[in-house]
Computed example of a mutant assay.
Amino acid sequence: MSSAIYLDNHATTPLDPRVLEAMLPYLTEHFGNPSSNHLFGWVAREAVEKAREEVAALVNATPEEIIFTGGATESNNLALLGAARALADRGRHIVSYVTEHKAVLDPFKVLAGEGFDVTLLPVERDGLHDLGLLERSLRPDTVLVSVMAANNEIGVLAPLEEIGALCAERGIVLHTDAAQALGKIPVDVRRTRVALASFSAHKVYGPRGVGALFVRRRPRVPLQPLVHGGGHERGLRSGTLNTPGIVGFGAACRIAAEEMASEAQRVRALRDRFLQAILQRVPDAVLNGHPERRLPGSLNLSFPGVEGESILTHLGDVAVSSSSACTSSLRQPSHVLKALGLSDEMAYAALRFGIGRFNTEDDIVRAAERVGNAVSALRELGRASASSA
């Protein structure tokens, strides 16, 4: 696969070799259970706590506020179900947005079935959030607001500091799904005043199967655990800790803290070069989402008259996606693109490009050429079919 081009870094990122190097000892000689009270356990426990410090440092939290989980989906479920149920005596109103990830929207369906009133707000046509609308939607019985830091399909960034201020003034718990933002843009839980934040290792060049939930300690956020059986992770997430995965997550966060600024600048330049190259070949391609307020490596483009799935079949060894990897098995237009006001035709015509750490200038040039050729070939095929009908 040496010639393959990977431009799907929103779905998952390749494991950084430095992360793998950090993990390997804990897959071999340092195999102990971190809960065990002997040498093998102590070594594993020390590694887990070091990783907890590294994750906390990246988001300006304290180590005690980081709870390790199996991934961002689990973190979202623990945050939303756990907080809503714990706060039910104070109120049962929740506010979020229609463009959230399914790992947020689906837990809200569960809570709605339990009698919670869930308000899902629209976004503007460029994916931005209307703060005035959010403020007007908050009620005396609103206990929880959830807003993703960066959208997984269009990369648009939420104004978390402003939303955090609105919630803090009213004593409302603010949760953010920051899986896509972590390590790509600064995430500061103090400055944004979020109470709960979900993270995933495999979105930041770490291993799959491990994530974290930031749980603010002062003021304390009440949570009901979802998993019981041992009281691990301060009673919030029972189960033997995945020491190698956690070590890898910590290493990925440490690398991100050191390299994020320079990497974001380089990736943003590659993204802009890629967009320019695409528009030279397909001038009527349409950018979905705000052109500036988005992740450095994010591009979501619609190609009028051509289905994104058809383009994928013509790209060969260029890896991109036509939707979120978490919903790609569902044959329906993206709920995010529909929320921007796109027609079904334009939503189906979309591709998501995720440029990342290991992409090169050559990748960008070759991929843009492949996409342009695929669109041209499919449009020519469409015209031939139409003329013969």
Rank of each mutant, 00 (worst) to 15 (best):
V145P: 05
T243K: 09
Y6I: 02
A181M: 14
F249T: 04
L7R: 01
A350V: 05
D126A: 13
N152T: 08
N359S: 07
Y348G: 01
A264H: 06
D141F: 01
M148T: 13
L120A: 09
A256P: 03
N288G: 02
L337Y: 04
E29N: 08
S3A: 14
V286R: 12
M1Y: 12
H290G: 09
R220I: 11
P291N: 02
T360Q: 02
L157P: 04
A339H: 10
K109G: 15
G316A: 00
L138P: 03
C253H: 00
R136K: 15
A261P: 04
K109D: 15
L301S: 08
P219Y: 05
L312Q: 05
V267H: 08
R191Y: 09
R266G: 06
R45I: 05
Q276H: 14
R170Q: 04
K102H: 11
T243P: 06
T176R: 01
A57H: 07
N9H: 15
A56M: 02
R52W: 10
A79D: 06
G32S: 07
L381F: 02
G41W: 03
A72K: 03
V375Q: 06
G354P: 04
I185C: 03
R217Y: 10
A51R: 03
L182M: 13
Q224L: 13
E162K: 14
I66T: 06
G235I: 01
A150G: 07
V215K: 02
A325V: 14
A256F: 03
P122T: 07
P222F: 00
T327H: 08
F31M: 14
L7N: 08
A212Y: 04
E369C: 04
L111Y: 03
V282E: 06
M1F: 11
V147H: 08
T240E: 15
R234L: 13
R85F: 05
A11I: 05
A389V: 11
R217W: 07
R293V: 12
L157I: 06
T176L: 07
P63S: 04
G289E: 03
V48L: 06
L15E: 06
S376M: 04
E114R: 01
G231Y: 06
S322P: 00
V282Q: 00
P207N: 05
I278D: 01
L378K: 11
D117W: 03
Y97W: 14
L196T: 11
R237C: 04
N300L: 09
K102E: 13
L131C: 12
E380Q: 14
I185W: 10
F31A: 15
A368Y: 01
V247H: 02
V145L: 09
A285N: 05
T313P: 05
A325Y: 12
Q280I: 09
D317T: 11
I364Q: 05
V267K: 00
T12V: 08
A88W: 10
L160K: 02
P17M: 07
L166N: 02
L7D: 00
T13W: 00
N33W: 12
G297D: 10
F353V: 10
N37C: 13
S298A: 14
D130I: 00
R237E: 06
R85P: 07
A47M: 01
V43A: 12
R190T: 12
A261I: 10
L337T: 03
N151V: 02
G356C: 09
G289L: 08
A112F: 10
L160G: 04
F358C: 03
Y26D: 08
R85K: 01
V210S: 05
L223Q: 06
Q265D: 15
E153K: 07
G32D: 04
N77F: 07
A158K: 00
S310D: 14
T62S: 13
V227E: 08
